[in-house]
Simulated assay, not measured.
Amino acid sequence: MRADAKKNYSRLLAVAHDVVAKHGVDASMRDIARRADVGLATLLRHFPTREALFEALLCTHLDKLTQKANELETSNSPDEALVSWFREWMAFTQSHRGVVALMASAHANADSALYASCAAVHSASARLLLRAQAEGTARTDMNGDDLFGLMAALGWLVDLPSFAPRADHLVHIIADAILPNRSSNDIEKQRAESER
C-alpha cells in the first residue's frame, strides 16, 4: 500500500471510530469520508461496503477483547474471570454503539466479514463459562450459545439511553443468575471493585 493510501486508510479508521462512538453503526459513510477529508470514492476504494468498514474497525477491538478473555482465563478465579469478561464486553459495546446487532447477525452468517471475529468472542465466552462450571460456581444448564445470547441482550439493552445508567446493575443481576454458587464475600468484593 502506498504511503498516501496507508495514511488515508488509517485516517478513515480513526474517523470512523469517532463517528461510530458518537452516532452508532448507522453513521453515514458519506459523513465519515467528509470528516476524514477524503472523497466518498476514496472511502469506498478502501471499504467497498459498510460491513467491510466495520470489519476493519471492529476486528482490532474484537481481537483485543478476545485477548483479554485469554488473560482472564489464566489470571483470575473462574467466577471473577466471567464477571470481568462481562465488564469488558459492556465497555466494548458502550464504545461501539449498535455493534451488537451487527455481531448477532454476523454470528449466524459464515459468509459475513465479521464472522471470524464474532466466533472468537463466542468461543472465548464459552471457555470462560466452562471453566466456571468446572469449578462449580456457574450454572450447568447453560452453554456458550446461551451466554453469548445473554451478552448480546445485555449489550443491546445498554445501547438504549434509558438503560445505559443501569449497565453495572444489570451486569450484577446477570452474573448472579449465571454464578449462583459464588460466596457472598466474592460478590461483595467484585461489586466494590466495580465501583472504584
Rank of each mutant, 00 (worst) to 15 (best):
N109E: 08
R97L: 09
S194Q: 03
L147I: 08
S84R: 13
R191G: 05
A91L: 07
S194W: 12
W156Y: 15
W156N: 13
W85K: 02
A177K: 13
I187H: 00
R191N: 06
A152G: 14
M90T: 13
L130C: 09
K189V: 13
F163V: 08
W156A: 14
L82W: 00
A120D: 12
S75Q: 15
D145G: 02
T140H: 12
S75G: 09
D111Q: 10
A119Q: 09
E73M: 07
H107V: 00
H107E: 07
A175F: 08
R191T: 05
A110Y: 12
S183D: 11
S105P: 08
A138Q: 07
R97E: 03
R191M: 09
S183W: 09
C118N: 03
D141W: 09
Q190A: 12
R97G: 05
H169L: 02
G98R: 03
A108R: 15
R131T: 12
H96C: 01
R139M: 01
D159R: 08
E73G: 10
Q94K: 15
S77Q: 15
A152S: 15
F86E: 01
A113F: 01
G149T: 11
A101V: 12
A69K: 09
M151I: 03
P165Y: 04
S95Y: 00
L130E: 14
T137H: 00
R139C: 07
A69D: 11
M142V: 14
R127V: 11
R131Q: 10
A108L: 13
T74W: 10
G98L: 07
V100N: 02
G155H: 04
K189R: 13
E195K: 10
D79N: 12
E88R: 12
I174Y: 10
R166H: 15
S95F: 01
L82P: 05
V158F: 13
